[in-house]
Write a protein that binds this DNA or RNA. Structure first.
Lengths: 243, 243
DNA sequence: CGAGTGATTGACGCAGATCAAGCGAAGTGG
DNA sequence: CCACTTCGCTTGATCTGCGTCAATCACTCG
């Protein structure tokens, strides 16, 4: 039995903008169904013209691009509440792939319906544009990380970014541990580093007692020091719209 | 005397989507004025809450982020037809800066007006979202370049990207030369390379007779070979909306 | 128990950073 | 009109962060 939008567990969280009953019901009507997927499953494929859009309800995933020579760039991670497939919806086809890292639950929306929804719900259209702009902002930051920062600094930046997001979602426990069910290879592909160097960089952070990451759980021991290393500011997580 | 939207020289180009007279007039009403700026002038500043949005009418610029340590990452270049300030419009403040490289002419829009415009012109709202999605796509590609490609490959990719865009805008002459009024430092900051290495990489491409770039003009002598080097596909430029 | 997957560690080499110096063109002021 | 500065481009020498190669280890699973 699919989650009813009015009872959506995500919508209760502080991180997501509050909507009136009417608005939530409109989203409910837009929603075509729900989907459970296994870890490792592809959700959207680069080049595909997906007839569906999704919102991640639970679970974690990642977006990536594959280069002609087989190398992979992880564009970013997929967290609960993320809207997936906007590119295909607007540009006709996906320019990157999305896959599930853990088991995931997705809300499914119909692409044909999407246009109607966008046109008839101005506020939601606005939210969707907002999401695109935030994503653009994130990618700009990521670009600056890859272009200008050292391996250590990049890694500190990425871990902090992830941790803050997880924290915003209430996925950290009291002691500040949060789930991080990715492989080192995923992190390496996100940071533009080799697996080996990623491992060694991580080892250094561990030695310095700044980070521990094992068994799929991440703990940042010294946010201050990491933030210094990252050489960036981390604002408290913004309230986002949830479609 | 400001350009009238109905007579906008950009709108005539194939690269931009055709609009009906009504639609163009709506944009004209949205337009608050026009602005001429000198080379080197800042258009939007990171952190600022600009009361205005712009569309580049002519001239070239660049978007960049400055890191706390003073390093700079060029996010992308600004071409005629680009819409500037959407981030500030949506997120309250700019997350990167924009500055003019050459003299530029900008159409000025009022931010307060922007919300009304977005809400009352659904098709234009759609176009704006489309623009954000395309930008997101571009940044994803750029990220993959910085993360996965060698200096030579990155440079080939960037020059091709620029050339194709210029070509789409009809800014290349018959012999395939196009303007490129940037400094090597700008390119370096875009590619995440040092100035010195950028220069040497460029020198290699020149020796191999693939590229010539001097006096602010770029000529790509062998698109095929460069495309191979870049290890990417270059689709013909997409038709974009023009606000 | 063997096979597969992911983490870890050491040895080695190279792409690209950094340092340093010189060059030509354009501007500026005395 | 000529010193003098400034800015962008070039080039060489040297250093190093990170990639690549190659093993090994710890787990999990059939």
């Amino acid at each position: 039995m699919p989650t009813r939008c009015l009872a959506c567990p995500l919508r209760k969280k502080d991180m997501f903008a509050k909507l009136g009953r009417e608005d939530v019901e409109a989203i409910q009507r837009f929603k075509a169904g729900e989907m459970q997927i296994e870890p490792g499953t592809a959700i959207l494929l680069e080049g595909s013209n997906s007839p569906q859009l999704y919102t991640a309800l639970s679970g974690l995933g990642l977006r990536y691009k594959t280069l002609p020579d087989g190398r992979r760039q992880v564009i970013n991670l997929v967290f609960p509440g993320d809207f997936l497939g906007l590119q295909a919806g607007l540009m006709g086809k996906m320019r990157h792939s999305v896959e599930a890292t853990t088991a995931m639950t997705l809300c499914v929306f119909d692409r044909a319906e999407f246009f109607r929804f966008f046109r008839s719900h101005t506020e939601r259209a606005f939210d969707i544009t907002w999401l695109a702009a935030v994503e653009e902002h994130f990618l700009g930051e990521a670009l600056a990380s890859l272009g200008q920062r050292s391996a250590t600094s990049r890694m500190a930046w990425a871990l902090l970014k992830i941790w803050h997001r997880m924290n915003g979602l209430g996925l950290c426990d009291a002691s500040g541990r949060c789930p991080l069910p990715y492989r080192q290879q995923d992190l390496a592909d996100a940071l533009g580093l080799s697996l080996v160097h990623t491992n060694k960089t991580l080892a250094k952070l561990r030695e310095r007692q700044l980070v521990s990451w094992s068994g799929g759980m991440l703990r940042l021991t010294d946010l201050r020091a990491l933030t210094d290393l990252a050489g960036a500011e981390f604002e408290s997580e913004i309230v986002r719209p949830l479609i």
